[in-house]
Amino acid sequence: MTDTLVAVEGLVKRFYLRGQNYVGAINGISFEIGRGETLGLVGESGSGKTTVGRCLLRLVEPTSGRIRFEGSDITQLTKRELKPLRSRLQMVFQDPFASLNPRRTVRQTVEEPLALQRYAPAHAWLGMITEILKRVGLGPQYLDRFPIELTASEQQRVGIARALITSPKLVVLDEPTSTLDPTVREEILGLLRSLQSSMSVAYLFISHDIMAVERMSHRVAVMYLGHIVEQAPTAAIMADPRHPYTRALMSAVLSPDPARRLPRSLVVGEIPSAINPRRECPFYSRCPIRLDRCLDDVPPMAAVGPEHGAACLRWRETSEVLAEVAPE
């Protein structure tokens, strides 16, 4: 496949505790991201989605599995070999203020990737910084401001400018809008999308907000307890979700339209502990339509349709069974 940018195969990340115990943060997931494409990775806290992003940048070391970026396996690179890759693989963080060094001005912050990568001669930097700031909607008057002097929206724009200044091929967006007000969230999502079309960058968009994921992504992967439980093009998964957890996420969305009836909440309880996971369906403890055979093994990804997979034994009948156990 020529247009694949990133291919993740069988990625596993375990955090070892005392003795033989470990936290199964990621339990063998596989996905691909094409050039200029957005893959939305959606799940609740504890699903392991943030760890996936951090593994991609090698901010944490994967336990096993392969991550091929532009053809080469980056899990095998030494730290020295990793450095030039950083200009093509970047990240935008969840908390815009905390991700900026409080003692550096906007200019110093955005300049750092250029200086580290010796990207272009130094006299060209100021022009490049002004240009990228303009693209994220900040004028030259921001160059000498400190993070504390910016609004949350401006801070996140600086974070985006810092990630994009070296024209990366892939940017991991780790909940870039979750701490922002809804009105600002809309602004930042729109900005990210327009930057994507003008700079042809691919995104891994990590979020707990399935509505934002729908708005941003070409394809969606739903994560639960370190597994991808459903993966499909956005339109397909929104129209015909087959995993009960995907359904639960969608039914939990609170529409601002008071005339629309609130769908019944499908799940109770919270995401269970990820310590020493058993080989069974990860969603078993909260699933409204579980069967005894769900405990036999982790369900395989069933091919629901073209490019649409769901890791549920009852994928053929999800809607009907759910309608029985949780009538509207």
């Binding site: 496949m1 596989s30 996905f31 494409e37 809804p182 809309e186 999308r193 708005r215 649409h308 997979g309």
Partner: peptide
Amino acid sequence: AADLRAVSTAPTTNTSSKMVP
């Protein structure tokens, strides 16, 4: 701002690649 669906249009380019089963 709250109703993302209301302002949503499908993402612009779609160079979709196949999913790993």
